[in-house]
Nucleic acid binder design. Sequence first.
DNA 1: AGCTGGGTTGAACGTCTGTTCAAGCGAATG
DNA 2: CATTCGCTTGAACAGACGTTCAACCCAGCT
Lengths: 227, 227
Amino acid sequence: MEIEERSTAARIRDAAIECFGTEGIAGTTARKVAALSGVSPGSVINHFGSMDGLRQACDRHVLAVTRDRKQQAMAAGPNFDILDAIRAAGNPHLLGYLAAVLTDDAPAVAELVDAMVADAEIYLAQGVDSGMLKATADPHGRAVILVLWNLGLLVMHHHLNRLLGADLTNPDFGTSPEIANYLTPIMELYGDGVFTADFIQNARAAMATLAERPNLRDSNETRGTPI
Amino acid sequence: MEIEERSTAARIRDAAIECFGTEGIAGTTARKVAALSGVSPGSVINHFGSMDGLRQACDRHVLAVTRDRKQQAMAAGPNFDILDAIRAAGNPHLLGYLAAVLTDDAPAVAELVDAMVADAEIYLAQGVDSGMLKATADPHGRAVILVLWNLGLLVMHHHLNRLLGADLTNPDFGTSPEIANYLTPIMELYGDGVFTADFIQNARAAMATLAERPNLRDSNETRGTPI
DNA sequence: AGCTGGGTTGAACGTCTGTTCAAGCGAATG
DNA sequence: CATTCGCTTGAACAGACGTTCAACCCAGCT
């Protein structure tokens, strides 16, 4: 289903994206979306069949917009901000919507995340080639972790904002002064890591031991995931 | 309000934690909790006043359990797994509940996250002292990012499981073989970072320039947050 | 044995939900 | 001007929800 921009359906869809983002998925009702887009509740259902259909249309739209912007960004050279394409799309509510839907496992959301990871793998490989990034033993695993770390921060923007005073859902975040609170520790972690070389060596030895002698798994030295 | 363990109220509360985790916050109804705990819907409300009261009781319980376990873990020495205390509490549904509530900004959840960050700051400082961790210019910022990165992965465990085959909500995750898929890239990132020394130097120079000449903020070399 | 009182129940109430549908509207067409 | 047709409406529906409350049960006290 293709939605003509500037049509009533597009207005309803955009209002739904805003509503899903601000009121949450469950807090969004047909009547709220209707009021926000200036139509009747019946019209909302008439255009999208059901509230679930509306939700899926929103997912598809975010996916399409992201793909669209991503192509432009790709042509302009590697970009390391996975959210930049969405931020650049113009609609200030897309990030809020994404933060709201990223937690449940709707198919279109999974597709979007998978696409982000696939793109990140490409960008990261390019970064390695150009000497910007270190090489890795597990390019896929690294891409997954890096993408999910960043999407995770977006999902918990409430906590990030409270603790660091940085609001990722703010459309002007990229040019706000608060970005330093967020960027400084991240750049440090991305640049140097946290663990010292000594500790890493010990931990790798412990993991090798664990691999060949699994019965040691409950020993104190290997318990727990780091941090 | 203190809930005596093994009481009916405790059974209802535990059923609610399970239900909130599996069905989501909005998908949890008084009747479902009643059925799961083997009481009547009226009794659920009678014990907790309202569904919101039940939700708050769950939050308080998770906070109390975490604090309890954390003290024991603290006495046993520094522990770098922020979820370990919860995992060790025995209730296999606590992590699922946490993953469900971490996105909305309920006061008790904020308190729990703040406590985790405060603990992390202590552990990280101890790690620096013992030579396990590198020093940082911003201990608070680093603690926030590290905690939120990990909680973010928990929140998006669906995606992590699909992409890496590692389920953080599995109580036996710490001893499962799939933990390597998750631990390998994370250990690499924590150990070495991603950026090369060259790139970091350039980026720091760019940030310094940006600090003293803010009108350059939209220049291409400084656009976007990394990754 | 008789009484008391907290715990428990299940039916009932009002509200809000998604969804349906007959009626109405206005622009385009003949 | 008359007709048609697609979009829009708002009233109406059934279902699910949180919550209330009179009745009931039963352990523990007098």
